[in-house]
């Protein structure tokens, strides 16, 4: 499934188009330690709202250094939470911000990352409350 298709369906690229997140990688890393999984998910839920605000502000101000730094960090948390539908977009934001290229499309790409991340957070909150 392409990233564009994933965006349209909200899929995570794992074949399940109903979900945004996939904790398989994190669970493999945890090796059965659910406490660790929960700690990582909670850390993501605590830190991501600020990161998304910072990302939007940096895009609005066309602050390429900030945009590069925040997108770079987000790539790692996106991987941990298995939000594969925006993994490539975050990589592209970092690349374009670093190279000062494709600036016209950066706002749209940031919007995509913010939108999917918010949906992923909602999903994770639901998952951990069950």
């Amino acid at each position: 499934m392409s990233e564009q298709e994933n965006q349209a369906t909200g899929g995570n690229g794992s074949g399940n188009s109903d979900t945004y997140t996939d904790l398989t990688y994190l669970r493999e890393m945890a090796n059965g330690d659910e406490e660790f999984v929960l700690k990582m998910v909670n850390t993501y839920l605590e830190n991501t709202p600020q990161a998304l605000d910072d990302l939007e502000v940096a895009a609005k101000e066309e602050n390429m250094d900030r945009l590069r730094a925040i997108a770079h960090k987000m790539k790692q948390s996106i991987e941990f939470m298995g939000i594969s539908s925006i993994k490539e977009t975050a990589t592209q934001i970092e690349h374009y911000a670093k190279e000062d290229e494709n600036i016209d499309n950066l706002a749209t790409m940031v919007e995509q990352v913010v939108d999917v991340s918010k949906k992923a957070m909602e999903e994770l909150r639901r998952d951990i409350s069950n």
Partner: peptide, 16 residues
């Protein structure tokens, strides 16, 4: 590391 999740996961890996 400026990423708390990396610090937590690396600590967990080393512990295990």
């Amino acid at each position: 590391d400026d990423d708390e999740m990396v610090l937590t996961s690396l600590e967990n890996h080393l512990k295990n």
